[in-house]
Design a protein around this nucleic acid. Structure first.
Lengths: 197, 197
DNA sequence: GTCTATAATACGATAGAC
DNA sequence: GTCTATCGTATTATAGAC
């Protein structure tokens, strides 16, 4: 089965991840999705922008669930972080450094050019932060630390993706993971400033 | 003065930072640079790709010197990190969340679509890492830790830029800074893996 | 070298037959 | 609801006058 609309959203998500928003044409989308051109404007009367908004939210939700599945298997925060970054590195290599964050490229493109789509990316990131914070709280951190660590986790992952895709190397993911675990351990020790040791 | 070529490169850099590579047209570039259209192909026979390659390397070098100037004023690594992230946040707010990393958007766009430009972005990031590593060595870290911390610094900055520009908030930069300082302090303590405590 | 006009093509979007 | 043909307008790139 797989309805035409879902097929359009799915392939658009893959194309956005590799080529970005402005770099992906509607013609290419329908060609790769095996859909007639008119279907886009039938399902998305708002055109490319409306399609993009739905793609951002859909792929953002899917990626969140993927990461949650990995994090929820880990017994503690440090293990979760290490497993998550290792999985990200594996995916990156397996896809020829193409499949990293599904919305980062689009997020940077639209941040200063399209307010509607910027809000869509902001909503996705906010949901990711909430999801991560919930898990850090489960692992015993207070609300403030949990939120901060969730942001650290996501920013480190996003930044590493940028360097890894450019350099075609996973080194940045390894380095970033070490910083996140350092931040986690510092919070576990109850200090976000130095002192003891 | 300011030669036509330099003016084209400069405005292209500003446009790339806000709109990305595919989102910026050559017509818009010459219009904003106050240059005739033909000048682009006079100075850059290779067209948009050659112009982009030069813009990536030029703006990458400029941003590196800007960051180095900030880092070199700090007495120690932690102060340098904190000052650097604070400066980035100030710039971000002052420019309406437009001026973050000059090449990140382009780097993600071309990573899987243009091998020539991907290499240009990779070279820039590599130079940044070397520059940062040199400074961490100056602050007393061994070569391996220095390189790792430099990568941590850059990835954290890049990732925070993504979230900050999307959310129009500097919270991610603050959180990211705390992780970098945690990583720096962990390296200072001589442990990058757990054990003692 | 500077600048303009234009070619060839791709874009997003629309109209309308089926 | 599916599909095609097409409309304007963008794009990159080129040719050629000055």
């Amino acid at each position: 089965m797989a309805g035409t609309k879902d097929r359009i959203v799915g392939t658009t998500g893959e194309l956005f991840r590799r080529q970005g928003y402005t770099g992906t044409g509607l013609k290419q989308i329908v060609a790769e999705a095996g859909a007639p051109f008119g279907s886009i404007y039938h399902f998305f009367p708002g055109g490319k922008q409306q399609l993009a908004a739905e793609v951002i939210r859909t792929s953002g939700r899917a990626y969140q669930q993927l990461v949650e599945a990995i994090l929820d298997q880990a017994p503690d925060a440090v293990t979760a972080v290490e497993t998550g970054f290792a999985a990200a590195a594996e995916t990156l290599v397996a896809t020829g450094y193409a499949d990293a964050c599904p919305i980062a490229t689009v997020a940077l493109e639209v941040a200063s050019t399209d307010e509607t789509l910027r809000e869509a990316t902001a909503d996705v990131f906010a949901a990711w932060v909430d999801s991560g914070a919930t898990r850090f709280e489960r692992w015993g951190f207070g609300p403030a630390d949990a939120r901060r660590l969730a942001i650290v986790l996501i920013t480190s992952l996003e930044g590493a993706f940028v360097l890894c895709r450019a350099a075609r190397s996973t080194e940045a993911l390894t380095a970033a993971a070490s910083a996140v675990t350092a931040a986690v351990r510092a919070a576990q020790a109850g200090v976000s400033s130095p002192e003891e040791r």
